[in-house]
Amino acid sequence: MAGKKRTLPRIAGLTGGSPDTKGDPSGALGATIAIYSVKGGVGKTTFASNLAWCSAQISGHRTLLWDLDAAGGSGFLYGLEPKGTKPAHDVFAKERAPEKLIQKTGYSRIHLLPADESIRAIDARLTEIGKRRRLAKLTRALGADYARVILDCPPVINELSAQIVRAADLVIVPLPPSPLSTRAFDLVVREIAGNTRRHPPILPVLSMLDMRRTLHREVREQHPGWPAVPYASALEQCAVQHRPVGEIAPGSPAARAFANLWGAIERKLAERRG
């Protein structure tokens, strides 16, 4: 992968009010950040949930965490469950406004749009609707109230994934160090290049990195410029305690890694607008 020359899409480079009212105290322009991979079990929900916390608590952004995975992991990590019957499906069909379904979390400036089982049928519904930029229009509208919309995406290649890459300003791809992850990254690159003309940049991130393992050290040496999030028991506790790692263990390597990753994301968004 490292030896291939790519022209599409760009790989993101690295350089060194009342909290729950409308409007963003940081004054930032809105942006949509997708946490996406075609491979499951890579840490997408952990990334999305913890980056939402970083957005709100480090940058002071009013942040919406939108769970697009039927498993509902982001809601679970914040101790929330969807309300009502099949609400997520209604949002895409414009049968119910997203604002009617958004829930406050226990943290200032972080709100959640939860998933439910109806998301399993969303691909067919989007195809039926026939609007290729429905998700992009929804996130743009939400951007009037939220400086950052973070999408916790399912591991799929279908109409939903196509709409995700059209909506995103930046795509974060968690990659555990393994040959299968390298293949998954190549599939993500092709998916993005094939579904949008003005493609968003991609930021690959090594996840669950364990430098005690030979393969992990080798992959880290191959990609020294990529951000990395270590394998850590503190991250496992996020699901146990229903809290972000920045709350559980603020001084831990995992918490510092997410803070550094968030800094890279903010710089990349600023560069894109500049």
Rank of each mutant, 00 (worst) to 15 (best):
Q241G: 02
Q57R: 10
K83V: 03
A141S: 15
A147Q: 11
Q103W: 09
Q163C: 01
L14Y: 10
L135Y: 00
S59A: 15
G79T: 03
R272A: 14
A234S: 15
I129Q: 04
P9Y: 06
K22F: 09
V188I: 13
T196F: 02
D169L: 11
I157F: 04
N50I: 00
P250T: 12
A12G: 05
E95K: 15
V229A: 02
I164H: 00
T196W: 05
A257C: 12
V149Y: 01
A48N: 09
V91Y: 00
A70H: 07
L261W: 01
V38S: 06
A48P: 06
K100F: 09
A121T: 14
L101C: 12
I192V: 15
Y78D: 00
F76Y: 09
A147G: 14
A249H: 10
K94S: 14
S18A: 14
P227G: 05
K137F: 00
T214H: 10
L51F: 11
A121W: 13
R109D: 00
P204K: 06
Y231S: 13
A12M: 03
I58M: 14
A70W: 03
P82F: 05
I102H: 07
P87N: 11
R243N: 08
M211L: 15
C238P: 08
G225E: 15
S207H: 06
L64T: 11
V165G: 03
L160C: 07
G75P: 04
L80E: 01
A124R: 00
Y146A: 05
H216M: 09
V219D: 03
L126P: 03
S59R: 06
S118V: 11
G16R: 12
T63H: 06
D69Q: 09
L151W: 01
G194H: 09
S49Q: 14
E266T: 15
L65S: 02
L68D: 04
Y36E: 03
F47E: 01
A71D: 14
I265Q: 05
L101M: 15
S161F: 02
F258D: 01
L126N: 07
A228G: 05
E247V: 15
A52N: 13
I58K: 14
R133P: 01
A52D: 05
L51T: 07
A259H: 08
L29D: 09
W226G: 05
W226F: 09
L29Q: 12
W66G: 00
G143H: 09
D169A: 13
A48I: 14
Q222I: 14
D145G: 11
L170Y: 08
R217K: 15
I33L: 06
Q163M: 03
A56Q: 07
P114K: 02
E221L: 10
F76C: 05
P201D: 04
P155W: 04
K131A: 12
G75W: 02
S59C: 09
C54G: 05
G3Q: 13
R132Q: 12
E99D: 12
A228Y: 00
F76V: 08
